[in-house]
Design a protein around this nucleic acid. Structure first.
Length: 648
RNA sequence: GCCGUUGUAGCUCAGUGGUAGAGCACUUCAUUGGUAAUGAAGAGGUCGGCAGUUCAAUUCUGCUCAACGGCUCCA
């Protein structure tokens, strides 16, 4: 009996029943067959060797398809497990999935010593096994058989996983001497794996629960070609060069001190300039958008956070209250600015005519983060939010929300972040105990976000369980140099805090109403934003942000006087930079300025002094000719404006 | 917080059971130079901290602090 197979180009071919993806590929071309890793059958990824029994739509997956890569890496995880089992008999296996870049397997080494020194040995074993061209076999087993197998093998983790599986849908995959409980799919055989590299090890709790045993997670990556592994490793090196912790040190943006405490960044002069420019930029944009700046203290009475609900939620995992010596009053370092802003709202009766009231503050907050979580500037214990709270009428929520989206996107585009993910963060579907407020209010808030993003025509992803405890959010995420995702901007709709703080306004009918709050921070925090921006531009900041914009480099001591004149004129135009009066040759001064990523160098010597010009050199471009200083200043200002123009 | 790795000069890193080295940076001197490193000399470290083993510890052991890679967490 024949079945009809529809291919992605729309063509329909007939094959005998039980045809496999691999056979279909072979019927098209041998070259294709050599590349096929898996097959997407009616939208589901299958083994390329699995028989297809009825009419189906089939897409053949290769290394160029994300699902093809995932299958490849998943199979690589099995291969690694096989190699590890061969080298360390008696180990227990957790889970071993493919991830965004590679794969991992969680291993209980059951008494064996394992360290990264053994990586090469494991890699060699994997390649040895790969060359055996062992097919991955899919085996359907009953639950009983499956339990018997792992009970005999003595693998408690697999037995635990089996508990949650239904009889009848359990499959094993077997290659060489290795059998694993696995849903699949897998690549046809191990010989596709031509290059492997183990990357690092890490502890990981069994099933992600910190009450469970910690297993050793081994990360690795593999490729169908040796060359691709090399390219990948070059890419990783490049990413490391962009790491904001490294660049931050080199460019003297920030530092940490053990004596000050972990997670408490010290901003150095150049970093402070960067921060300040970002603040000024946003303040200006916010002024235009109708925000008003406020300032509030760094601590607040514990009572404030009891009211807001933050104390009940986070009190135990926060910095503990400060006690006054005499009255024994309790104060908390402020972990967020909203309660303070609520009190500003309450400072006088409000009319509907005043709304929306938009209160903005670069507010420094302190949160106790677990020590193992701290990471450069992206995860710290003291940081400054570009915070604002919009108090508005319920009928204004959507419009205000959309305006905030515009502001966030304006900020992103001005700073060159084209790639970001807008994530709608909603409540956990099952566990509602983590949240305050009624279902009705939550639904209103969630609806407002969904509608606003739809009306803006934004591409969004929805994540459940990612909401704040008082309301849903729209989060903007970007990736760092090493591919880790970080949340930058956030916009949150909140019906709950106005309740808790009993915020009110008088409506046109002279009745009291409750306003709605929108929390928002386009940068998120200055710290994290600077970190991600640093990596984004590899320390080569746009001209308007560069902490050192122009270096004045006299050829020799004889021209110091003229150079000083030039430098002070630059200062009068608010151009930042330095004058290099060191007793060094010009080549050296240029090199040092290049290394410091200074965008412009003005070289002055005999010729410039006599003609009253400056020789302009642009970083990365070289000499761009001589001109009178005033000409350079206007050229420079043009370039600053260009560097700020929102990219399309 | 948990698992693993690391900690030597301002930075990047060698090294050893007998109290330490390089390059760059820094200081001084010579040099007055034209688009990515001029030369010489000097100074700089209680080898993360505390304890223990030892005749002797930077080196071995324990604890502790911090950083790094993950896990968990993230108002």
């Amino acid at each position: 009996m024949n079945i009809k197979i529809t291919l992605p180009d729309g063509s329909i071919r007939e094959y005998a029943q039980g045809v496999t993806g691999l056979e279909i590929a072979l019927s098209i071309s041998e070259g294709l067959a050599r590349q096929v890793l898996a097959a997407k059958v009616n939208g589901q990824v299958w083994d390329a060797t699995r028989p297809i029994d009825c009419d189906a739509t089939v897409q053949l997956l290769t290394w160029n398809d994300p699902e093809g890569k995932a299958t490849f890496w998943h199979s690589s995880a099995h291969l690694m497990a096989e190699a590890l089992e061969a080298l360390y008999p008696g180990i227990k296996l957790g889970i071993g999935p493919a991830i965004e870049n590679g794969f991992y397997y969680d291993i209980d080494f059951n008494g064996h010593q394992f360290s990264q020194d053994a990586f090469e040995q494991v890699e060699a074993k994997m390649l040895e096994l790969a060359r055996q061209k062992n097919p991955f076999r899919r085996i359907q087993v009953s639950k009983e058989e499956a339990i018997a197998y792992f009970a005999q093998k003595g693998d408690p983790y697999k037995l635990e996983l089996l508990e949650d599986l239904q009889d009848g849908e359990i499959t094993f995959y077997q290659q060489g001497n290795f059998t694993d409980l696995c849903r699949g799919p897998h690549i046809p055989d191990t010989s596709f794996i031509k290059a492997v590299k183990l990357l690092n090890t890490a502890g990981a709790y069994w099933r992600g629960n910190e009450k469970n045993k910690m297993l050793t997670r081994i990360y690795g990556i593999s490729f169908p070609k040796e060359k691709e592994l090399k390219e990948y490793l070059v890419l990783v090196e490049e990413a490391k060069k962009r790491d904001h912790r490294k660049i931050g040190k080199e460019l003297e943006l920030f530092t940490f001190s053990e004596r000050v405490g972990q997670g408490l960044p010290l901003w150095l002069p150049k970093g402070a300039i960067l921060r300040d420019r970002l603040e000024q930029f946003l303040k200006k944009a916010q002024l235009k958008a109708g925000y008003q700046q406020v300032v509030t203290p760094h601590i607040g009475s514990k009572q404030l956070y009891l009211t807001s609900g933050h104390y009940a939620k986070y009190g135990k995992e926060s910095f503990q209250p400060i006690h006054t010596p005499d009255e024994n009053e309790e104060f908390l370092l402020k972990p967020m600015n909203c309660p303070h802003h609520c009190e500003i709202y309450r400072s006088k009766p409000r009319s509907y005519r005043e709304l929306p009231l938009r209160l903005a503050e670069f507010g420094t907050v302190y949160r106790y983060e677990q020590s193992g979580e701290l990471h450069g500037l992206t995860r710290v214990r003291g940081f400054t939010q570009d915070d604002a709270h919009i108090f508005c009428r319920p009928d204004q929520v959507k419009e205000e929300f959309k305006k905030v989206i515009d502001l966030v996107l304006y900020v992103f585009s001005t700073l060159g972040f084209q790639e970001y993910v807008a994530q709608i963060s909603l409540r956990d579907k099952e566990d509602r105990s983590k949240y305050i407020g009624s279902d009705e209010l939550w639904e209103k808030a969630e609806q407002a976000i969904i509608e606003a993003t739809q009306e803006k025509g934004m591409q969004t992803v929805v994540e459940y369980g990612e909401a704040a405890f008082y309301g849903p959010k729209l989060d903007f995420m970007v990736k760092d140099a090493l591919g880790r995702r970080w949340q930058l901007g956030t916009i949150q709709v909140d019906y709950n805090l106005p309740e808790r703080f009993e915020l009110e306004y008088i409506g046109p009918d002279n009745q009291r109403y409750r306003p709605v709050m929108i929390h928002r921070a386009p940068f998120g925090s200055l710290e994290r934003f600077v970190a991600v921006l640093t990596e984004h531009c590899a320390g080569q900041f746009p001209l308007w942000l560069a902490p050192e914009q122009v270096a004045v480099l006299p050829i020799s001591e004889k021209y110091h006087h003229y150079a000083q004149e030039i430098f002070s004129l630059l200062q009068q135009h608010d151009i930042l930079g330095y004058l290099d009066e060191r007793d060094e040759k010009i080549g050296r001064k240029i090199r040092d300025a290049e290394v410091k990523k200074v965008p412009f160098m003005l070289i002055v010597g005999e010729k410039e002094q006599s003609q009253h010009t400056v020789a302009v050199r642009r970083k990365g471009q070289g000499d761009i000719g001589s001109m009178p200083l005033n000409e350079f200043v206007s050229y420079f200002k043009e370039q600053v404006a260009l560097s700020m123009r929102p990219s399309e």
